[in-house]
Design a protein around this nucleic acid. Sequence first.
DNA 1: TTCCAGTGTTGATCGAAGTCAATTCGCTTG
DNA 2: CAAGCGAATTGACTTCGATCAACACTGGAA
Lengths: 228, 228
Amino acid sequence: MNRILRLGIRERDVLMQSPLFSRLGVESLALLMEMAVLSSIQPRQALFREGEPAEQLICVLAGYVRVFRLDAAGREADVQIYGAGDLVGASIVPPGRPYPLNAQAAEGGMIARFETRRLMEAAGQRPDIALALAHLLADQLGTSLRTIADDRLHTAPQRVARYLLENCAADGREASFRLPFQKSLLAGKLGLAPEALSRAFSMLRQYGVNVRGRLIQIADKEALRRVC
Amino acid sequence: MNRILRLGIRERDVLMQSPLFSRLGVESLALLMEMAVLSSIQPRQALFREGEPAEQLICVLAGYVRVFRLDAAGREADVQIYGAGDLVGASIVPPGRPYPLNAQAAEGGMIARFETRRLMEAAGQRPDIALALAHLLADQLGTSLRTIADDRLHTAPQRVARYLLENCAADGREASFRLPFQKSLLAGKLGLAPEALSRAFSMLRQYGVNVRGRLIQIADKEALRRVC
DNA sequence: TTCCAGTGTTGATCGAAGTCAATTCGCTTG
DNA sequence: CAAGCGAATTGACTTCGATCAACACTGGAA
């Protein structure tokens, strides 16, 4: 919430790598940097709620942001998890509508906020900004469409296996890596209850997947690929 | 596939209403109209397949286009249904990648094709085109995110009830309308097997929903809303 | 170290929806 | 009009995953 925070080197770096900035010319880049307002975020802090007027786009600089929807009974369904460099709520780029979803910090971190109104003004004058926006939206649309298909086609162990294969080092027969966040968050991202994720992991043991805390060890990626 | 077809009045009208064109200035409009290549499409005709180089964006002028994904076993999962005015495959706007999904004509109709390369060139020079693209992508991203949440939060009868309420006249206590396409297509759109859609309809009978062929009659929208 | 709270795991049960098979419906075509 | 075909429905069965509850593990604070 601290408006006085200035962009440090680390924050600039993350921004520069983000899909919004990475394709810009120097001038546009400076223009947008100018607009960024930094905030640190606390675990579980709400960043915006469904129905609120949508005026700001958020770029995650550190930590993770969970975007979810509530039903009438108060149950939550995660829609997407955003990490460093990701733009949250890009679907509200056209200003003047309410947020369609809720966003919450999954852990402590740092974000940059951009006024959508100013962003759109800038995009109207500088094609590279508009194009970068289109690019980034297209990417998010792509992953989101793929998520729909995956949900409908694959069982829980299959979804987990796919996630592991996408997020481990590409080379070699075996691999090991650390989950970037809590298992309950991963469960939500995959559209599962935490219990279902747990069961999926234990069923994947017979395919050479070993889990200790956040550490994942895969004995044979080929074997795992056959699960999908 | 007939490249000689020229834009008739009806086709121009649909294009003008589409989210890509509706926000453009006259010059940009003329430029894009110029690029449109018309084709008539036959039922079940494949428009593009997963993995093919993605070079064309498709705008539906008449009929419906089904976008779906195949799994290893050959099962299909529908991701989205596009109707007149909708832009298919907008997620491939950035050129040079393969199509991530399959598209197929659900019935006979008419489409306009645009080369993504030329489209992006035009967008790079004319901010209104780039902005229109961003706008449209944002919309599609929004609906797609909402689909994910809906899938995860609602049962089959609830999803059907929501669809009915969104697609019937807004005013009045009762309503009736025709489904725009086959039930099997609707089932896919809602992420259901046809049998599940059928059962959902018959369970909604007790909430005042009557179905005969494609004709839907809703006795009391309030009652139906309580299902969701 | 011990305690504690939050996180994750396991077990038992239940309900939703997918699948396969058998009819029935509704529309097109001769 | 009848015939015939694909679409839709219904039934029986099965599987997957949500839910609730009990328990175990982990990491931080006193």
